[in-house]
Measured scan of single mutants.
Amino acid sequence: EPLWIRPDAPSRCTWQLGRPASESPHHHTAPAKSPKILPDILKKIGDTPMVRINKIGKKFGLKCELLAKCEFFNAGGSVKDRISLRMIEDAERDGTLKPGDTIIEPTSGNTGIGLALAAAVRGYRCIIVMPEKMSSEKVDVLRALGAEIVRTPTNARFDSPESHVGVAWRLKNEIPNSHILDQYRNASNPLAHYDTTADEILQQCDGKLDMLVASVGTGGTITGIARKLKEKCPGCRIIGVDPEGSILAEPEELNQTEQTTYEVEGIGYDFIPTVLDRTVVDKWFKSNDEEAFTFARMLIAQEGLLCGGSAGSTVAVAVKAAQELQEGQRCVVILPDSVRNYMTKFLSDRWMLQKGFLKEEDLTEKKPWWWHLRVQELGLSAPLTVLPTITCGHTIEILREKGFDQAPVVDEAGVILGMVTLGNMLSSLLAGKVQPSDQVGKVIYKQFKQIRLTDTLGRLSHILEMDHFALVVHEQIQYHSTGKSSQRQMVFGVVTAIDLLNFVAAQERDQK
């Protein structure tokens, strides 16, 4: 057995438009009618409502009807409940999964919650491996369901041993009777949507819809739904939504950006999952974080739909894509998950301010006199920076000697690579993860907040409520011999709460 199987392995699926269902090699399930009293909570997966979006479509000038398939009504709160249950049931049916076995899954959280929910009911041990950027709410729900959680670096490539995929496979090879159901490759993922989600949409719309818009992560949702719609409703256009920084969209030119990270969760990847059939997507749109969270908040405030950030991405694209539809036509959007997962993220004004998705003037509360002053007023001194090749031991000596707790790590040209902190280095040394002679590049981390000289002290204040420091950066445009230009970030300084307090105190003292 291989040590790991690539999540982007070539698909062996034989589905073709027009091929009889009787030739399918898979076990198919028909939607079942729910009894009045459910035998367990797993029976509350599927049969989610279709809700008309009344205000947002009109606000953006849509002539067509805009409908939302509300997947956050599933038992675990997301569309991923469907595939989690289906993968477990299919693994039980073919004898792969037996009582007492362990389920391991690399996930952005929602599939993990679905699997942990099913594992709690069915009696399996469950280990979820997820990147650090995923919300604390997801972690809390997983723990409450009895799952064990392993976190991995957000910026690790999918084929790196440190990625959530790599760590999951390492655990599988170490733990007896453990299984990775593997949402990236498992046919049960798109089949769950082909058999149930798509049929529900067709039934709820009486077979009449002209466009379907869905955000894409593993691709199982859009693949399964689109294949069924292509068979039953061939005139329906399928629109895929991919965040900026991901590479799922086609044509490839759409993916060209210097951005590699994004805040919206559960969609987009740096590889093409095996289950994603991009041939059934008629057109791709890219979405960005700001519009995703703005539209998610709009869905909550104006439509009462308590959905997550990827739902915002989907609707932001839908109001663009559906401009081509006329009166009497219908566009369906998939709202994948609930706001429950993001209470401390985009639902929080403070978080939105820190990330730059909300401006101070958007909030009406009274601010102190210094709130709208610029960061450049602080008069920061030149920063202490270190090269990635310097040793951890030497870096600790320098920081202690100069009285700093942290320093930016830059390359020879001064471009920011990340940050090192005294606390992080000492804990890594004590844990045996690094040696004093190791290069400081081994303990770089990139989960820090950046701020510009033109940003306000109010925004800085919000950042420092949650973080010990902020890195002050400025952009530099560099022209190359080819005539092309590129933008790079340079370090201007490091600012802490002490710097802000000293500035405010000094100004008030001078005024007296």
Rank of each mutant, 00 (worst) to 15 (best):
R400G: 10
G414F: 15
K366R: 07
A321Q: 10
G309C: 02
E327S: 09
V386N: 02
N502H: 15
V317F: 06
E244Q: 10
L299R: 03
D242M: 01
V440G: 10
L353S: 08
I267E: 06
N341I: 01
L335Q: 00
T496I: 14
I239S: 06
H462T: 12
D277C: 03
K449N: 11
K345A: 02
P383K: 08
V410W: 08
G304E: 01
L248K: 03
N255C: 03
Q435I: 15
G308N: 00
D455Q: 10
L299E: 03
M298V: 15
Q406A: 09
E250C: 08
K442E: 14
K442V: 14
M466L: 14
L335A: 05
F295D: 04
G379N: 12
C307G: 07
E290S: 14
F503R: 13
L347H: 03
D510L: 11
T395D: 09
V241H: 00
K286R: 03
Q376C: 13
S481C: 15
L380F: 04
T456F: 14
Y479R: 12
S338F: 09
V333G: 03
L500Y: 07
K366V: 15
G304M: 00
K449V: 07
V280G: 14
V315M: 09
Q326S: 13
E365Q: 14
P383V: 07
P243T: 01
F503E: 02
I390R: 03
F285V: 12
L387D: 11
G309P: 03
V386Q: 06
I477Y: 09
K449A: 13
D411G: 09
P251W: 01
V332M: 12
T456E: 11
I498V: 14
I463H: 07
K345T: 06
F346G: 02
A318G: 14
G403W: 12
I239R: 04
M298N: 10
I272W: 04
I334T: 11
T274Y: 00
I477Q: 05
D499E: 07
H394A: 02
T391A: 06
G418N: 08
G483H: 08
I498W: 09
L380T: 12
H474E: 13
K320I: 09
A292Y: 04
T314W: 05
L353F: 14
A506D: 13
S461A: 05
Q354I: 04
G393R: 15
M466W: 13
T261A: 03
E265H: 05
F271G: 00
G441W: 05
W370I: 01
W370T: 01
Q450K: 14
V332N: 00
N341V: 01
L347E: 01
G328I: 08
L460Q: 02
K359S: 12
P336I: 01
K366S: 12
Q302Y: 07
I238G: 06
V264H: 00
V281R: 04
F293G: 02
Y479N: 13
V472Y: 03
T389W: 05
E303P: 03
K359P: 06
H372I: 12
E365D: 15
P368W: 07
G493F: 13
E377C: 06
V420D: 05
E360L: 13
Q489C: 13
V472E: 14
A506G: 15
Q302H: 10
Q326E: 13
Q439K: 11
D405K: 08
H474R: 07
V504E: 09
L378V: 06
V473C: 11
C307D: 02
P251R: 01
V440Y: 05
H394Q: 11
V443C: 13
E465A: 12
L358R: 08
D438W: 12
Q507P: 10
K355P: 02
E327C: 15
G403M: 08
Q447I: 12
E303D: 06
L501S: 03
L453G: 05
E252C: 06
F285D: 09
D270F: 00
T389G: 10
P383R: 06
L306A: 00
Q354W: 14
D362Y: 14
V409E: 08
I416R: 07
M425C: 11
K320T: 15
Q450M: 13
M490Y: 13
V410A: 13
L305F: 07
R400L: 11
S287T: 11
L422S: 11
S485M: 12
Q259E: 13
H468E: 07
N288C: 12
L380H: 10
D499S: 03
W369S: 04
H462F: 13
V440W: 05
T260E: 13
T314M: 06
Q435V: 14
P273D: 00
D337H: 00
A322I: 05
V494K: 06
W370A: 03
I444K: 07
E265K: 04
G245E: 01
A506E: 10
T496L: 08
G312H: 03
K433Q: 14
E303T: 11
V473K: 10
E265V: 00
E361D: 12
S310E: 05
P336Q: 09
L276W: 00
G268T: 01
Q450W: 15
D289M: 01
T454H: 09
T421P: 14
G414E: 15
T395P: 10
S338L: 07
A292R: 06
G240N: 02
L464P: 06
A497W: 11
K512F: 10
F285G: 10
C392K: 11
F295I: 09
Q302A: 04
L399F: 15
V434K: 11
L422Q: 07
L429G: 14
K449Y: 15
G393H: 11
K283S: 10
H474F: 10
L453S: 06
S246Y: 00
L363F: 11
I247Q: 07
V473I: 04
N341G: 04
I300D: 00
L299Y: 03
M298W: 08
V491I: 14
L471F: 15
A318E: 03
I463Y: 14
T294W: 11
L378P: 06
P251C: 04
F404M: 14
V332W: 00
A249W: 01
L464M: 11
G268D: 00
E324C: 04
C392S: 09
E290R: 04
V440P: 11
F503A: 09
Q406S: 02
T482I: 13
Q478S: 15
Y445W: 03
T260P: 05
I247F: 05
A249D: 00
V440L: 14
D510T: 10
Q329M: 14
E290M: 13
D510C: 15
I416L: 14
E365R: 15
L429V: 13
V339E: 05
Y269W: 02
E252T: 15
T456L: 13
G379C: 12
N288Q: 14
E324P: 13
V443A: 13
S481G: 13
Q507R: 15
H468G: 04
D405R: 09
E465P: 07
I247Y: 08
A321W: 03
E508G: 14
G308S: 00
I463V: 15
E252I: 05
R459G: 12
G403H: 10
T260H: 10
M490Q: 15
A292N: 03
R350S: 13
G308F: 00
S381T: 14
L387P: 12
M419R: 11
K484E: 14
V386E: 09
T389I: 14
T260L: 04
A296H: 01
V375D: 07
Y269R: 02
L399K: 06
T274V: 02
E244V: 11
W284C: 00
V473Y: 14
N424R: 12
E465G: 15
L471P: 14
D349R: 03
P383C: 08
P436K: 13
Q489R: 03
T454V: 15
V375A: 13
T454L: 08
L335R: 00
A321M: 08
I267N: 02
F404T: 08
W371D: 09
L464T: 07
N341A: 05
D405A: 14
L430R: 15
W351H: 01
G356K: 07
Y479T: 13
E253M: 03
T456C: 12
E508W: 10
A322P: 02
D270C: 03
A407I: 14
S246E: 03
M466E: 10
E475P: 05
K446S: 15
V443I: 14
Y445K: 08
V241E: 08
K442W: 13
L358Y: 07
Q478E: 08
E361S: 15
L430F: 13
S461V: 15
G441K: 11
K446M: 13
G423T: 07
A301F: 15
G308E: 00
L387T: 14
D289I: 00
Y479D: 05
V280M: 12
